[in-house]
Amino acid sequence: MTECIMDELRIIEIKKSVFADNDRDANLLREELKQQGVFLLNLMSAPGSGKTTTLIQTINRLKERLRVAVMEADIDSDVDARKMKETTGVESIQLHTGGMCHLDAEMTRQGLAALSLEKTDLVILENVGNLVCPAEFDTGSSANAMILSVPEGDDKPLKYPLMFSVCDLVLINKTDVMPYFDFDLERCKQNILMRNPKATIIPISAKTGEGIDDFAQWLVNEVQNWKK
């Protein structure tokens, strides 16, 4: 930090990224979760892509193999957390972002504090439905995943490059309605891999169950590796 005097106003140079504090908090949280053997999946998508339905399907196939808890982040309401609890029976809480379009590491930490982490292998954070802001803020998650649904179009990786480049896993949901949309699965995969060559891509349908076992197995493998 340097200072100089100019026209009666003193200038204090800061030169610091707005995201620096959050990045530091997120790295600290990730390290703590690693030590506790808790895997945190940050699941992102646009509103209406089927996050909640996909999670219910997946958790119902996973809960014999992993101890799962869910944090639902929304600007308001608790419909998702109640639905999750009723349909899967796993521990689920609702986080309110107070009008903000994303969760940050500090809000994630507060949410985790309300869960019984010592009895949990996998925490799934359902982030606010939005393809822009959540990508900017590291939550401290062990891995990032997103859902792109067929009606949104195969060009979304081109329009929201940051979101696709921060995700380890991309689920392409609603494959059952593919015949009704001008959606080219191969072109979509190419668009994703151009942004992020390391991304794992799994086509799914939360409605018919296609691909859900593959997603569940991906989670089991990731959690096992995390606990090593």
Binding site: L9, I12, K16, F19, C133
Partner: peptide
């Protein structure tokens, strides 16, 4: 909404720097 979240971060950082430098009011 995105910008509002960023503004909250800026405010936190600016207040911290101002306090460290014993500044009572920030002009810009």
């Amino acid at each position: 909404m995105h910008e509002l979240g960023i503004v909250f971060y800026i405010i936190r950082d600016v207040k911290q720097v101002a306090e460290e430098n014993h500044v009572e009011h920030v002009a810009s």
